[in-house]
Design a protein around this nucleic acid. Structure first.
Length: 425
RNA sequence: GGAGGGAUGGCCGAGCGGCUUAAGGCGGCGGUUUGCUAAACCGUUGUGCGGGGUAAACCCGUACCGGGGGUUCGAAUCCCCCUCCCUCCGCCA
C-alpha cells in the first residue's frame, strides 16, 4: 500500500517507480480523485463545526432550564448536506484505496531493470558442483527407485501435485526442518514460533496476498484462507501494533506447511515434488527500524545461505530484476541451489525487504524514544529454506552410484546417526 | 451448537444522552532533589484525517470509546446486525 501524501508530494517519482514495474502512470488520476475527496471533506468538516455549535446551544439552554431555544438555523437542515458530502468523501476514499492496493511496492534503486528472470543479476556463487562418475539422476527417479517417494499414492489420496514420503526419506524431510529451526533459533537469534495455517481475510490482505492474488490461494468453506507461506501469520503478528523502538528488530522463525493453488503454473514442473500444492518451509521474518532494513536484509539472506553451506550444497545468490520482483517486495535475493540430476539452478530461498509496504497495509508502527509514534516498521521475510526443495537438493547432490543417498554430516544427528539411505537389497 | 456476561487511550479502569476538551491509576518522556541507584515530588504524554507552517517543533479544525448501520438538534452512553473475548452447558483431539 502506498502513502497518498507521498504521491501528492512527488507524482513524477511515483509514476517513474511504477513504470519500472511496467505499469502506466496513474498519479494524475489518483491526485484528481484525492483532490475531490479533500474538497468534500473540507465542506463536511465545516458543517460539523456549525452543527456542533448549534447543538451546544440547545444543550446549554436545556441545562439552564429553558423550555425552548431560538435558533437562526434549523439544525435538521444540516443532515442532508452532511450526508451528501460524507458519502462522496467515503466513496472517493474507497475508490482511491481500491486503486492503490493493487499497485506493487516501489523498487529499491539498486534493483536492475528488466522484464523477466533473464535480467536477474547473479551476485555470487558458493561451492563447487560435485563431479559424478555416473549419470546423476533426478530426485523423483531416486525416490521412486528407493520406494520412498510415492506420487501414485498421493494422487489416489489427493490428486496431482502431492507426494507421499516413506521411511528414511520422510525422516530426512523432518530432519531438514528440525536442523534449520535449530540453526535459526540457536545461532541466528530468531524466536521459534508456531502459527495458525488458516488465517482470516485482513491477515491475507496485510502481507499483500489479497485482494489481488486470491486465485493463488486455497479458501475454506467458512471463508478462511490456507497460508501460502508462514510469512503471512508471522508478519501479521505486528498488525495493528505499535512497537517500542528499542524492542526492534523482532525476528521470528517457523516451520510450517504451505498451501498454493499453483493456478497459473499448469504444465510447469509437473514431474516430482518441485512444485506442490502442499509443502513444508522454514520461514524467517524480521521487523526492523526503517534505517536498519537494508542491513537486516543482508543478514537474513546470510542466514539462509548458512543453511546451504552447512549442508554443503552449491548455490548462487541472484538479485531479482524489476520484472521478477514480487508484488510486496522492494528488493529480493533468490538463492538457487544446484540440482545435478536436473542440471539446473533452482530457487530454494527468496529473501525480500518489503520496507514499509506491508506495514502500512497492516498498520504496524513503532514508537520512538520520545514516546511518540514515529512511523511504520519495515518488514522482511525469507525462506530458510524451503524444506521440500532442500530434500530434493540433498537427494540429487548426495546420490550414490547404487541409488543410495548419503546423509550430510550436519543432518546425521537428526537421522539416528545414520550415514546414508540405502537402496533396497 | 445452546444460555448468559463483556470489548473505553501503550496497559488497567471510571463514565451509561449535552458541563467528555474521556476522570483516576500504571507506564513513557522531561525536570527537581540526590555521592550513585532507588524513592519522592512537579510537569507532560492518544491516533487518524483535513488545513496552516520551508521542514522539525508547533498551531487550527474534525473524527475516533471492538466493526457496521440506525434513533436524535446532539451518541462512548439508546436500538439493530456482525466480530472477538470470558463463564456455564453440550460435543470433541
Amino acid at each position: 500500500m502506498h502513502d497518498s501524501r507521498a504521491i501528492r508530494d512527488d507524482p513524477e517519482a511515483f509514476d517513474a517507480a511504477m513504470g519500472r514495474r511496467g505499469l502506466d502512470a496513474v498519479s494524475t488520476t489518483l491526485l484528481e480523485l484525492d483532490g475531490q475527496r479533500r474538497g468534500h471533506l473540507a465542506v463536511l468538516q465545516e458543517l460539523q463545526t456549525q452543527r456542533k455549535f448549534l447543538s451546544r446551544q440547545i444543550g446549554d439552554a436545556k441545562r439552564r432550564g429553558e423550555k425552548s431555544v431560538r435558533l437562526d438555523v434549523d439544525p435538521t437542515t444540516f443532515r442532508e448536506d452532511m450526508e451528501l458530502h460524507e458519502t462522496e468523501a467515503v466513496r472517493l476514499e474507497i475508490e482511491i484505496k481500491g486503486r492503490l492496493e493493487s499497485l506493487p511496492n516501489i523498487l529499491d534503486p539498486d534493483v536492475p531493470n528488466g522484464a523477466d528472470e533473464r535480467d536477474n543479476r547473479i551476485e555470487k556463487h558458493w561451492g563447487t558442483p560435485r563431479a559424478f562418475d555416473f549419470q546423476p539422476r533426478q530426485h523423483f527417479e531416486l525416490g521412486e527407485t528407493l520406494g520412498m517417494m510415492d506420487f501414485a499414492a498421493a494422487a489416489k489420496l489427493s490428486g496431482s501435485r502431492f507426494v507421499v514420503l516413506r521411511g528414511p526419506l520422510a525422516r530426512l524431510e523432518r530432519a531438514l526442518g528440525q536442523f534449520m529451526l535449530d540453526l535459526h533459533t540457536h545461532e541466528h537469534g530468531y524466536e521459534e514460533t508456531s502459527v495458525p495455517l488458516l488465517v482470516n481475510e485482513p491477515t491475507m490482505y496485510g502481507t499483500g496476498q489479497l485482494p489481488k492474488f486470491a486465485e493463488d490461494l486455497f479458501r475454506t468453506t467458512d471463508g478462511r484462507w490456507l497460508i501460502p507461506t508462514a510469512e503471512v501469520p508471522l508478519t501479521n503478528l505486528a498488525a495493528g501494533e505499535i512497537i517500542a523502538e528499542k524492542r526492534l528488530p523482532l525476528r521470528f522463525t517457523a516451520l510450517s506447511e504451505c498451501f498454493r493453488s499453483e493456478a497459473g503454473s499448469a504444465g510447469r514442473d509437473t514431474r516430482g515434488m518441485l512444485r506442490q500444492h502442499q509443502f513444508r518451509k522454514v520461514e524467517m521474518v524480521a521487523l526492523t527500524h526503517p534505517e536498519e532494513s537494508a542491513a537486516e536484509h543482508e543478514r537474513m539472506t546470510r542466514c539462509a545461505e548458512r543453511v546451504l553451506e552447512l549442508l554443503d550444497l552449491p548455490y548462487r545468490r541472484v538479485l531479482l530484476c524489476a520484472g521478477d520482483t514480487g508484488f510486496s517486495a522492494a528488493k529480493t535475493f533468490d538463492l538457487e541451489v544446484w540440482l545435478p540430476g536436473q542440471g539446473a539452478w533452482r530457487e530454494i530461498s527468496s529473501c525480500s525487504n518489503c520496507r514499509d509496504f506491508q506495514a502500512r497495509r497492516m498498520g504496524a508502527r513503532y514508537r520512538g524514544a520520545n514516546g511518540k509514534v514515529a512511523g511504520f516498521v519495515h518488514t522482511l521475510n525469507g525462506s530458510g529454506l524451503a524444506v521440500g526443495r532442500a530434500l530434493i537438493a540433498v537427494m540429487e547432490n548426495y546420490q550414490q552410484a547404487d541409488g543410495g543417498i548419503a546423509i550430510p554430516p550436519a543432518l546425521r544427528p537428526y537421522c539416528d546417526g545414520n550415514e546414508r539411505i540405502a537402496p533396497p537389497a
